[in-house]
Amino acid sequence: MTFFIETLIGGLLAGTMYSLVAIGFVLIYKASGVFNFAQGAMLLFAALTFVSLREQGVPFAAALVLTVVVIAIGALAIERWILRPLVNRSQITLFMATLGLSFIVEGLAQGLMGAEVRALDLGIQDTPVMFGDIMVSHFDLVAAATATVLVTVLALLFNKTRVGVSLRAVADDTRAALSIGINLNRIWQIVWAVAGSVGLVAGLLWGARQGVQFSLSLVVLKALPVLIIGGFTSIGGAIVGGLIVGAAENLAEVYIGPFIGGGITPWFAYFIALAFLYVRPAGLFGERAIERV
């Protein structure tokens, strides 16, 4: 029983990381209707930039600020050269454009900063912490706490600030938002920058674990089932979805994996997602659109 609970908690904590990646997705999807496949590449790029700056001896805080600046510049470029020319095009077209974007960002990241695995030390000890019988990773706890703080900050940002309110207006009804004078291009720039910064946090937490390397960009594939479960438009859904996927994956690898050859994590989350999809075709929290003809 202790082992089960440890596995479950480990999964839930890992799930918060999936949630973080998924939130970046949801933000962009809500504001610009883009299914951003490049979220993983952006995460890799952000983490690599940060590590490279640290390696040059830049202090932690300064490196963080500089990385966010780089992300913001990237967001401006993406809005100007990809989103604006593709406005009013089909969602699938936009998705494919982000597929192209992910190639560019990955190529740039590795071309400029190298392909080797880079160690990242955030100064968090990875020692076990005991709660009674139950052993939990200290690092996982810190990561989950960071994720929680970040989500809270985002929630405040969207509910209390002018930009946040505009963003919600755009997400609710783009045309109405435009008609009251909200600058859509500006909103897109901000949202992509914020999503990139969320990606940075996720990338750092993840990178501190397994080193900053190319495989970081593959977490995007982990985030897809999370989105399916939670729905593309709900931050709450992304959080719940992440927890579900994290827990289910960990439990399945331990309890089902050994019977069917192990290594099932790449696809198991997808099967859970499909099961959800069959019951709720628009995700747990997503809204089903009524087709007007």
């Binding site: 990809i82 020319p85 077209t93 974007l101 560019i104 190529g107």
Partner: peptide
């Protein structure tokens, strides 16, 4: 890496 960048750029260019 260069190939990736060129492919990505071309894809976006075509879509646009």
């Amino acid at each position: 890496n260069l190939q990736k960048i060129i492919f990505g750029t071309l894809i976006i260019w075509f879509l646009i």
